[in-house]
Amino acid sequence: MTRWVMIADLRRCVGCQTCTAACKHTNATPPEVQWRRVLDMEVGEYPEVKRVFVPVGCMHCADPPCMHVCPSTATRQRADGIVTIDYDLCIGCAYCAVACPYQARYKTDKAEFAYGEPMESEKKQFDPKRLGVATKCTFCSDRIDAGLAKGLKPGVDPEASPACVNSCIAQALHFGDIEDKASNVSQLLAENQFFRMHEELGTDPGFYYLWDKK
């Protein structure tokens, strides 16, 4: 079995938001919709202050609450763990959005563009199916599927990897199959201390944060 997961190395992330820009470029998300965003946190009090950058988005949980609450079965889970939304089934009730503990879901009711009128690139990528329905990070499943069809390895070959991972200037983001003990992500998790966000809620998220060596 395969389970695709993502890793963010918090020691490496510099908060440049290149992943956010790459995601927006690849997936043509409208203004204020960021399937991959980076939180900019200030922690502590002067003079003991730290700044931490935390990439967030859909965690592609193994037990996704968004899927269980979805009344239309629009939200589903693939065999490889990726949580998907069928835009033709979704009714836009936003129940998934309030069930998600990671604020990963968006709903845009009307077409919006960066500068009011759509630019040529926005016109080309505009998808009316995404209006009035829930949207979120797909782990770039179309790139993964196309890459696998060509015999490429997601997480290793850029053509088969999510756009955010490809774009990361600090190699803070990694992608791979956690069920494969020899994969890049399995190796990273074996060598480092990690946590997952809100693990206590039992969603079994597929997004790991590295914070120190073992």
Binding site: V69, C70, C93
Partner: peptide, 24 residues
């Protein structure tokens, strides 16, 4: 609630997930 959903003409899709959804 019907006035709130993004795709009101698909409202009957609400009936598709009795297995796990309390909204259904």
């Amino acid at each position: 609630v019907w006035l709130e959903i993004g795709r009101p003409l698909r409202a009957l899709h609400v009936l598709l997930n009795a297995r796990t959804s309390w909204m259904t």
